[in-house]
Structures are given as C-alpha cells and as structure tokens.
Design a protein around this nucleic acid. Structure first.
Lengths: 257, 257
DNA sequence: GTCTATAACCGGATAGAC
DNA sequence: GTCTATCCGGTTATAGAC
C-alpha cells in the first residue's frame, strides 16, 4: 500500500528491529542459563537494556519469546539431516540418524522444552503442532520424512505409501514427547528407544506388505481417510475458557530469524 | 507429641478433613464455572470460607486442587465400566465400551481440560500422568486394562501378556490426547477414532501371535525390558529447572505386579 | 506513528503471628 | 489450623519522547 521507501543506503536494520533482536538474544541467553521459570521479564529487560514495558511492546508474552527456539531448532535439524539424506541409503539407518539428529539439535533446549511443550500441547496455542498455524513447520518435517522414505532402499506397499510420511512424523512427535520426560544422562533412554523402535518400525513396514496383512492395511487406511475427511467443526459456544485477548496472529509476523 | 484424643463418638471426620473437603468442593465448582485460569485461589478461599493461606495449608498449589478431578473422573470411569466388564466378553467390544465410557465420563471437563492438559504435559507438573503423584491413578487404570484383557475371549501370546495392560493404558492416553484436541460436535471424531482403532488393536494382538511375528515380538519385548530396566538417573547438576521438590522415582517404582 | 519508560495491577505463593 | 500481610513476577495502563 503505502510507499515505505526503505532508506536504501542506511543501516539495513531499523532501530526497532535491532531493539527487538537485542531483547530476543537476551532472553535466549537467560533461558539457557536459568531455564524458563527463573528467567524473569525484568531480568530480560535489564540485560537487553530496555524497560519491561518495552519488552512487551515487541513480544506479546514471555512465551512468545520462546517461539524463536522453535524455528531455530527446526532449521538446525534440517541442516544436520542434509548429509545423512545425501549419503545413507538404508531406511533403518536413515530414520535412526534423522531422529538422532533431532535429539542432538534439540539438546541445548532440553531443560526448558518442557515448557515449550506445555504451550505446544494447549489446543488453543498457535504453537500446537497440530494447529493450522504450525502447518508450515509441520509440512516441512513431513517432507523430511518423505525424503527419508523415498531416498531409501525400502519397498513400501502402495496402500501405505501416501500416509507413511505422516505416520513417521507422528512417530517422531512421540519420540520427542518421550525425550521431554527423559532425565537420564545423555538422554540414554531416548537413544535406546530410538535404536529399538527404528528397527521395529522398519520391520513393521516390511511385514505390512505381506498378503496376510491386507485386512489390517485396509482397516488402517479407512481410519486415516475417515479422520482426515471430517473437518474440525469448531464448537462456537465455549466462552468459558481463559478468555485471553491473545489475537489470532501471534505467529504471523515474518519471524526473520 | 500431644495427645490429640480423637473424640471417639463425634462426627467421624475431623475438622481438618471437613475443611479440606470444603476447599476442594469450592474449587471444583469454580473450575466447572470459570475454567482453570479464571479460577483464582482467592475466589476458592472465599467460597470455601477460609483464608488463602489456609487453602495452601491443605493444597500445595492450585494445580494440586485439580488432581481432585483426576481422582473423581477416574472413579466415575471405573463405576461406569463395572457393568461392561461384568457382561461383555468380546475383547474388541470390552475395549471399545471402556474407552467410550472414558469419553462419556470425561465430557463434563472437556472445556477446560485443554488447559488442564497444558499443565499435565509439563514434565515438572504433578498432574503429569507419568509423574510419581499420579501413580495411584495410573496403576488403577492399568489394572482396569488388565481386566479388559483377562475377562475377554482374546488369546494373548505369552510374550505380550505381561505388557499388554501397560500398552493399552498408553493407547488410552493417546485417545485422550486426541480427544482434548477434538472440537467436533459430540466428539464425533474421537468416537470414530475409537471405533476404528479398537478393531485395529484387536487385530494386531491376534496377528502378533503368529509364528511369523516372533522376531517382531521379541524385539518389542527387548525394548520394553530395556526401557524399564534403566532407572531415570536424575541429572543432578540441573538446578536450572523449576527446582520442584518432586522426588526422583516417577517410573522406577516396582510397577506393582 | 514508532518507541520507550514508569507505575501500577493481579494472582500465585509464603512468612509468621495467633 | 487459621489468619493477615507481604513478596514476587507476569502483564497492562498510560504518559510521554523521538
């Protein structure tokens, strides 16, 4: 609409952008140092050399500060996966390495990702992995899983082929859920879970191709079709919940990064 | 120390017990009316005719109040299941009806269980279904699932028999997770999910008995043994997290049986 | 109109007197 | 067991600076 003539020579970032970045950086540092709970907005503001009110000018809430992690971690994961997908051909090992990469890239955030998950689990939150708002990230991850399958040596029965990437994504969500609760040193338990279940999954995919499995396959297929077909039919009434003013956008802003 | 001579004839409940019950009742009413967020401890205290401090004398935190729901809903569920378990013998139908009963008895809480779940998903929360605090309820539900299996016509391969109740409990958790996100009228989508997946699960259990499945069974078995064997090895350093006093065990406990 | 700061408000939680 | 007074931190109202 308006002209917004962008000072062509000047510092590429506006003052506001720089302030926003400073606040985000400060919060990231503090989250890493102290975890989510012990990081107060007052400390964030102080470290970023702004007032508390100013921090809220740029970020709707403390939780919104955390959103930066989401994108960053997903980005890291994809980068870490590139060499794996380029060289490995065994399905089992592709899957396993991709999941291990997920754990590795997420590790720095483990001590507060419980919190992240907490908001992500809220059906009303835009961070929710099933929400419309997170569809881009979700699609991105599903695509990764499709690559895992397609670049591999495994043969997938055609009944299953279309849905497998989605199912693998779901499986990864499950692994992450486990990981979040895992306090063993080096996430040893989650690593074991991955080592075991990747084999299990691979075997299942192979077995699912057997003629004997026809009825099971078809039944599963019907389930998926059925669930996908029916839209979410929002129930309107429910004003009873936490009436946060929190507008719809939240994520909308071009999150730079 | 003191004598505390318990008036032997008087009202069977002590004053403390009555106060505690009053606070819990007040909170339940308010949660139903206002949801979790809009229910404040001050309102709870006021309705229960006690001071805020007194409410905290009986309940460690606001979240602990919510646990009352867990127990009550679980109780309702068990009651609703009794006639099913007494009469139905088909495994598939036992499972399906038990899950449907779960949905029915949980329905009154659906409008705020999203928020409930939000805290429940936090590994640090006492509401977390995997936490030590919820172990009694968890054990209770697992036992229910054992009954579903044992009173039914299904034949379970002995490799699987011990673990099946736990796995079914996990399956139920998954259904609830879906239900929480389900805004379709009458939770139609969740009901469809149940209708489909109970058949799927039943079929899987049957198929798992085939000789062909030996390797898969053994692999799965190894996974479960392996994960259970290793205790949670609390990482000591991490003072960074919410510093809850929460004890270490969670999973380690000799899972009864 | 974009940015920044100060001073509250509100609600969960706690200390300590009675 | 029960209360009052207070802390603490997320969040907001609002006034003003650039």
């Amino acid at each position: 609409m308006t002209s917004t003539p962008e000072p062509e020579t000047a510092t590429r970032t506006t003052k506001g952008e720089r302030t926003k970045a400073r606040i985000l950086d400060a919060s990231l540092e503090l989250f890493m140092d102290l975890g989510f709970e012990k990081t107060t907005m007052r400390k964030v503001a102080e470290r970023a050399d702004v007032s508390v009110g100013n921090a809220y000018y740029y970020f709707e809430s403390k939780e919104h500060l955390v959103q930066g992690f989401y994108g960053r971690s997903d980005e890291d994961h994809h980068v870490a996966c590139a060499p794996i997908l380029a060289t490995e051909t065994s399905f089992k090992r592709r899957l396993e390495k991709v999941l291990e990469a997920k754990l590795d890239t997420s590790e720095p955030y483990h001590h507060f990702s419980g919190l992240l998950f907490k908001t992500a689990a809220d059906p009303a939150s835009p961070l929710n992995p099933f929400s419309a708002e997170s569809q881009p990230v979700r699609d991105h991850s599903v695509a990764l899983m499709r690559e895992v399958v397609e670049g591999s040596d495994i043969k997938v029965h055609k009944d299953l082929a279309d849905d497998l990437p989605d199912l693998l994504w779901l499986y990864m969500m499950g692994v992450i859920l486990f990981w979040i609760h895992d306090t063993s040193t080096g996430r040893a338990r989650t690593r074991r879970l991955v080592a075991h279940t990747t084999g299990l999954v691979t075997q299942l995919i192979r077995l699912s191709g057997l003629p004997l499995m026809g009825p099971l396959r078809r039944r599963a297929k019907r389930l998926l079709v059925d669930l996908r077909a029916a839209p979410d039919e929002e129930i309107v009434a429910g004003a009873s919940d936490g009436g946060n003013s929190r507008a719809v956008d939240t994520t909308s802003g071009p999150d730079e990064r």
